[in-house]
Simulated assay, not measured.
Amino acid sequence: MRNTARWAATLGLTAGALCGPLTGAGQAAPGSAPASLYAPSALVLTMGHGETALGVTPERAVTLTCAPTPSGTHPAAAPACSELRAAGGDLNALRGTEGVMCTREWDPVVITVDGVWQGQRVSYERTFANECVKTLYGPSVFAF
């Protein structure tokens, strides 16, 4: 049942993130170009404590839209979009500040990311040893 609730929340947030920018948009006149063309970049990020996303109830979920402009419920949308652009949208390539040391405490944090990055489907899950380690990888992206 927990997994069903997680998927329902993820799908609802994804739909809102992807369709939100479309509300109020009018049809372009025949033969005219749209005001702006961009590949959609809208993600839903969740965070919970546990070793895998399966069976873990998300404690926090945010939306992050990076095109045409940074927006969403993510508290640091602009820096998070900048980090993602610098990594080419590859969540595995995110790196944080060098020289930061974390304890070896095992208090696993699971991050999931679902949505679209520059028109391509994204589905990502990663378990970090603790909050400090999570912050090392994508200090803005995973800071919610």
Rank of each mutant, 00 (worst) to 15 (best):
C19N: 13
G20V: 03
G20F: 03
P21V: 12
L22M: 12
G24A: 00
P30L: 12
P30R: 14
P30F: 11
G31K: 06
A33G: 12
P34A: 11
A39Q: 13
S41D: 06
L43N: 05
L43H: 02
T46E: 04
G50Q: 00
G50N: 09
G50D: 09
A53G: 14
G55R: 05
V56D: 02
T57E: 15
E59R: 11
R60P: 02
A61D: 05
T63H: 00
L64E: 02
P68V: 11
P68M: 11
T69G: 10
T69I: 12
S71V: 01
H74N: 04
H74T: 02
P75A: 14
P75L: 15
A76Y: 10
A76H: 12
A77H: 05
A78L: 14
A78W: 06
P79V: 08
C81L: 07
L84A: 03
R85T: 14
A86F: 04
A87H: 04
G88P: 08
G89Y: 01
D90Y: 02
L91H: 00
N92G: 12
A93I: 00
L94S: 01
T97G: 08
T97R: 12
T97W: 07
T97A: 13
V100T: 15
T103E: 05
T103C: 08
E105M: 15
W106G: 11
W106L: 13
D107A: 14
V110D: 05
V110W: 03
T112Q: 06
T112S: 03
D114P: 06
D114Y: 07
G115R: 08
V116T: 10
Q118K: 11
Q120E: 14
V122K: 05
S123H: 10
S123A: 15
R126N: 07
F128Q: 01
